[in-house]
Amino acid sequence: MTDFTLQQIIYALVLGARWTVLLSLSAFILGGILGLVLMLGTISQRKWVKLPALGFIWLVQATPLLMQLFLIFFGPALFGKDVPAWMAACIALTLWSSAYLAEIWRGSVLAVQKGQTEAALSLAMLRGQALRYVVLPQAVRMALPPTAGFMVQIVKSTALASIVGFTELMKTGNILSNVTLDPFVVYGLVAIVYFCLCYPLSLVSRKMETVFDVTR
């Protein structure tokens, strides 16, 4: 057995954490873009836009993320196409977070009182203008705290990518644990790194709840 110093373990974990951060960020940004489109779809007046958007959200929320990840990782192999682990993880997490973000944001839009839209329409604004200038600015304030809160979920969910062999923080931990035979120390350190990534996000979320007081 090779002997690893504590510094070496921490160093390796931090290197692995870079991929966790990168995966989280891309899932959040890409998922956010797709989530915005989905959210706009769900509040559309047209049924053929609204129903597919709602259906997608429902499908994603009603199945485990791990299953979605397997489907994307192993599915294309049936057709002779190989999907690299990082890409499968990125696609799965993007689709998954888009559904949840769309649902969070849809809730915020619906929480803006109907009278606001009516007032805007009465001032001869079109529906799109009412949404853009009156409803969304108010919805964003309400959506920020739960959105920051959901980022914590994304960071923690990236751990699943380790199962398809993507060497992020968790997978790095697995490998180190196997070679050092000291799982308690290694996973303890993994937990600390996850905590350091997530706790600030929770704090930001909680802080925003008071700063963006919805009643103001």
Binding site: Q113, G115, Q116, A119, A120, L123, Q138, R216
Partner: peptide, 28 residues
Amino acid sequence: KVGMIFQQFNLFPHLTALDNTALALRVV
């Protein structure tokens, strides 16, 4: 051509009084 005033005012809470009156002038 038709202005409407509501029981619950329905002012836009994220805008000042002046911006409430000016928004539709700019947008519409």
